[in-house]
């Protein structure tokens, strides 16, 4: 190494104060600093500034909500979550505060779109059952005929009721498929309206009655006793809810 001078000292000063220089260079610099008050003063300034940054510049820690949302998006297929995330951010990135963000993620996690997928398919299946004249595999208004028919065809036991007395006569039952899962479908009639009640097993917790409408059909759905119930018809909402309540109570 060449003789140490102020110019060389300046160019190596950062490495010196960060202890990044090879030992011999470090030593030569120390030697120069011992004899040069100008360089020493400069080094002290730099050290002061570095200390001030360390002490006073904020260190932004990752919010809990962020770490949690990352973990939860990693645990499920990343593609759909990323899209949701992007939508969320594009929608209001500049104004979305941490709190709103956390709340949005929480709501998103709490209302899985899977419910939507189920009701969508139930509506399609209901429409199919009407068109294909394939409403019933077993035509009977007798629950004691319909229920045993399901046995052996399903790995769960759907409740079967006839509500003729309340204006909802049972027409029969059939096997259906929702989300690649075998489902029990029970057909009822009310006036001239056909009603399908779909039942599939679920691991999700029980939930209250929910009414919605899709493609002109009314839907009443809930979860109970590890089963998901979806009732679909063009019958009006209130009457469909009545059937929902009856089925719920019947259990």
């Amino acid at each position: 190494m060449n003789e140490m001078n102020c110019g060389l000292c300046h160019s190596l000063m950062q490495g010196y104060m960060d202890s990044e220089l090879e030992t011999p260079v470090q030593e030569r610099l120390a030697e120069h600093l011992g004899n040069c008050s100008e360089c020493t003063q400069r080094l002290d300034e730099m050290k002061r500034l570095a200390r001030a940054v360390k002490a006073h510049a904020p260190y932004y820690r990752a919010p809990m909500s962020l770490t949690e949302s990352i973990r939860s998006s990693l645990q499920s297929p990343p593609a759909s979550k990323t899209t949701t995330w992007k939508m969320l951010c594009n929608w209001g990135a500049p104004v979305l505060s941490a709190a709103v963000f956390a709340a949005a993620l929480f709501l998103y996690a709490e209302t899985p779109s899977s419910d939507d997928i189920w009701t969508d398919e139930a509506v399609s299946s209901h429409v199919r059952s009407l068109m294909a004249e394939h409403l019933m595999d077993i035509a009977s208004s007798d629950k004691h005929t319909v229920k045993p028919w399901f046995t052996g065809k399903l790995d769960f036991s759907p409740p079967v009721y006839d509500f003729s007395a309340q204006g909802f006569p049972l027409l029969g039952g059939r096997l259906d498929y929702l989300q690649h899962q075998t489902a029990a479908a029970l057909s009822y009639r009310h006036d001239k309206h056909i009603i399908n009640t779909f039942v599939v097993p679920t691991t999700q917790a029980d939930s209250g009655l929910q009414s919605q409408s899709k493609r002109g059909y009314n839907i009443v759905s809930w979860r109970q006793n590890h089963m998901r119930f979806i009732i679909v018809s063009d019958l009006d909402k209130q009457q469909l809810e009545t059937l929902g309540q009856l089925t719920r109570k019947g259990l």
């Binding site: 919010p63 962020l66 949302s69 990352i70 990693l74 990343p78 995330w85 990135a93």
Partner: peptide, 18 residues
């Protein structure tokens, strides 16, 4: 930017994971 930092870290973590 706070929300941008969220976005960036989320995207980065997903990429890193991938």
């Amino acid at each position: 930017n706070e929300s941008a930092a969220h976005d960036v870290v989320q995207e980065s973590a997903l990429k890193a994971f991938k």
